[in-house]
Amino acid sequence: MKDMELVKITEENTDDFSKMISEDLKCNLGRRFFNGLGVLDHESNPVGAMVYELLNYDSEEDTKILIHSFVSEDDEATELLMSEYGKAVSEDGAVESLYETGDEKINAVFTSHGFNAKQSESLNIVVSAGELKEVAAMTAGKKIPGYIHDMSDTPPLRYRSFLKKCLIKGKTGLLEDLGYLPLSWFEREVSICSISDEMIDGVLLVRKLPSQVLVPCLLTAFGIDFQKNLLYIMLQSAQRIVELYPEETKVVIRRHNAGVKKLTDKFFPNKNGEMVYTGKREER
C-alpha cells in the first residue's frame, strides 16, 4: 500500500483540496508569498492541507510566516504537514510563525508543536454595508472634493507610480505582494483614490472575495493633505459600497495596526472581533 504523499498546493491543483481550503483562500494560492501544502492518502484523496503566507519577505525586516489555514483528518497527515512546514520555515529564513484560529482542535495541534497560544479578540471585525450607511450618514455634512475618485478609470501607469511610493515608504496594508498585484485584482468601483497634479496621492484599495465579502486591503495617503484625504477617501468608499451593494454585504476590516484600530473604534465603537486563539512560535 502506498504511503501518504505530500504535495504543494498550487493554482493548478487547488480544486483537489476544495473541501479543505475555503474558496476565498484558494484564490490566494497563485499569489507571490502564499504557499500551500497538501497531503494525499494512498488513494490520492486529500487528508490534510495548510496555507501560509510569508510576511516581510520583500523587506529588510525579519521574515515571519502567517498560517492562514490548517486542516488535517488524521495524525499522520498532521505530522507530515508540520514536518514539511518546519523545512519550509528554515528554507525561507523565517524567524517566527503566527496563526489565528477559532477552532480549538487546530489550536491544540499547534500548541502540541511548540506554539504558544492565548485566547484573544480577533483582529478582524465584520460590518455590513447597512452599518456603513450609518457611518456615511454620520458624516453627511462633509462635502467630498472633486479630486477624490473611484478607481474605475485609473490608468495603470498612474497606479504603478503610486505603488512605488507605497513600497518605498513600506505602506502595503494587508498585502505583502502589493507590488505584484494588478489594479484589476481590486474592486475598482469601491476602491477610491485622491489625485493631485495628475498623480495618485492616497488610496483605499478594496478586494471582493469570491464569497462576495469586501475586504479593505490598503488605506494610505501621502502629501500635505494626507489626513484630510484619508477621511474623504474612506467616506467616498463607504458611500459607494452603500450605493452598489445590498445592505447585508459583509465588509471584513482587519485591524492590523494602531491606525486602523483607532478608526474602527471611532466609526464602529460597539464592534468587537470574535474570540479566537492566536499563537506564535519562535523559529530560530
Partner: peptide, 29 residues
Amino acid sequence: PDQCDTVKLDDTNCITVIYGDTRGLINML
C-alpha cells in the same frame, strides 16, 4: 520613485541610488 538619486557616471554608466526599504520595488522597476 521620488526617493532616489540618479548619477550619470560617464557616457556608458549610470546608477540610481534608492532610499527606503525597497526590495519590493525591484520587480516593478
